[in-house]
Amino acid sequence: MSDSASPLSPVGDRHFDGLAEKFAASLYGGARGELRLALLDRLLPEMLDLREQPLLDVGAGLGQLAGWFARRGHAVTLTEPSAEMLARARQHLEGQDLRFLQAPLQDLPELAPGPWPLVACHAVLEWLADPRSALAMLAGLLAPGGQLSLMVFNRDALRLSNVVKGNLEKALADRLEGKGLRKRLTPISPLTHGQVEAWSAENGLVIHEVAGIRVFSDYLRRPPESEADRERLLALERRYCRVDPHWRLGRYLLYTLERPIHPPEEATP
Rank of each mutant, 00 (worst) to 15 (best):
T77A: 02
E126Y: 03
Q91V: 04
H262K: 15
C241M: 10
G114N: 08
L142Q: 02
N162G: 14
P224Y: 04
K179H: 12
K165H: 13
A89S: 07
L37G: 09
S2T: 11
E202N: 06
A24M: 08
L27D: 13
E110P: 06
A112R: 01
L148Y: 01
E169D: 13
K183C: 09
R222M: 09
A129H: 12
E231S: 14
E225D: 11
Y255C: 04
R239C: 12
P263G: 05
R155G: 01
D3R: 15
L158G: 11
L138F: 00
Q102A: 10
L253N: 08
P109F: 03
P245F: 02
Q96Y: 02
L40E: 05
E177M: 05
L176H: 06
V76G: 00
G59K: 08
R99Q: 15
A103C: 08
T77G: 03
R72F: 00
A228G: 07
L111P: 00
P10K: 12
M47R: 09
A20V: 08
L101E: 01
N154R: 02
M47N: 05
L185Y: 10
A171C: 09
A228L: 11
R71C: 07
Y28V: 04
G33R: 01
E231W: 10
A103K: 01
T268E: 14
H262G: 06
A112Q: 05
I213H: 07
V163H: 04
L181H: 13
H74A: 04
G59W: 03
F23T: 10
L185P: 04
G18W: 03
R99A: 14
K183F: 12
E237Y: 10
H122K: 07
M151Y: 06
V206I: 11
A120N: 08
A103H: 03
S200M: 03
P131T: 06
V243I: 13
L56M: 03
M137F: 00
R221I: 10
L191N: 02
P264C: 01
E231C: 11
H208Q: 15
P115E: 02
P117I: 07
D244F: 14
L43H: 08
L118Q: 05
L128G: 01
Y252M: 12
